[in-house]
């Protein structure tokens, strides 16, 4: 990808690259919007960003292309993933619209805006291409640096202030000021004894011999799951797996298969379902 080629028109290679990677970028963008799980959206967005980085390189913005990969895809997207993990990686969003008319309005606006943008670009007279070659003659990074530290130095200083402010802001927002001393383990146990609830340790999660993961609630003697057995964080995220019906359903399936084999088909095959689950 020489500077000479980038100067006037684009090479066939670049055209090929544009059409292939452009398609990937659009698909990635669409997936970002329409994936149910936030973590998938984040990954698709990362893909799109990497494609964009390649395009930056193709347009002669070598510094930006590298920054895009290192800072954007590497740092910012990982920050996103971190927050996604914090909030709950397995939680899937419902894509069902709750605000009446919102989806149609959004699509209408988006479509109209897109049409306008396309019309504007088509309307604009973009005939002469100077090419980036001469500007990059002394090297892209050197050229950027000479601009940043001369003409744009004030804006550059301002972005520095902005970054510091943002860092402080993030700390202020996420830091929780404790208004009282954290209670020690001992105090907590003494409180439990005083109140008379859960004097022994909380029951452990998992259904032995079948599921022993931390997100599976232990079953009580009557077969119902006990919320107490799973961690509070998982409960709040709604990530508790309910396996109480699985054994019974398996048994049912087993019996049905046995009866089919014995050609006694009077009994209708029905899946066992907990009433409260059906109502959800």
């Amino acid at each position: 990808m020489s500077a000479q080629l980038a100067a006037y028109s684009t090479s066939t290679g670049e055209a090929f690259q544009f059409w292939v990677l452009g398609t990937v970028a659009v698909i990635g963008a669409l997936c970002t919007v329409f994936m149910k799980r936030a973590v998938h959206s984040a990954l698709c967005l990362a893909a799109t960003m990497i494609v964009l980085a390649v395009f930056y390189l193709a347009n002669g913005a070598y510094f930006l292309g590298i920054v895009q990969i290192v800072v954007y895809t590497g740092a910012i997207m990982m920050l996103f993933l971190f927050v996604v993990m914090l909030v709950g990686v397995t939680a899937a969003d419902s894509l069902k619209e709750t605000i009446k008319g919102q989806r149609w309005l959004a699509l209408l606006c988006g479509l109209g805006f897109g049409v306008l943008l396309f019309a504007g670009i088509a309307h604009a007279s973009l005939k002469d291409f100077n090419g980036i070659g001469r500007a990059n003659a002394n090297g892209n990074v050197e050229g950027l640096a000479s601009l940043i530290f001369t003409r744009y130095v004030f804006a550059f200083e301002l972005t520095g202030a902005l970054l510091i402010t943002a860092a402080v802001g993030a700390m202020v927002l996420t830091h929780r000021q404790r208004t009282e001393r954290a209670r020690t383990q001992r105090e907590l146990s003494e409180q439990r004894v005083r109140e008379g609830t859960h004097v022994p340790p909380l029951p452990a999660p998992g259904v032995y011999a079948r599921h022993n993961a931390v997100d599976v609630a232990g079953l009580l003697p009557d077969g119902t799951p006990s919320e107490l057995t799973v961690s509070k964080t998982l409960r709040e995220r709604g990530q508790v797996r309910d396996v109480s019906a699985e054994a019974l359903n398996d048994l049912k399936a087993l019996e049905q298969r046995a009866e089919e084999r014995l050609e006694r088909t009077e009994i209708e095959p029905t899946a066992f379902k907990r009433p409260e689950e059906a109502s959800k």
Binding site: Q102, L105, A106, C109, G110, G112, F113, L116
Partner: peptide
């Protein structure tokens, strides 16, 4: 949506 429509 209002903002976006307005911008459009």
């Amino acid at each position: 949506v209002s903002m976006f429509g307005g911008a459009a």
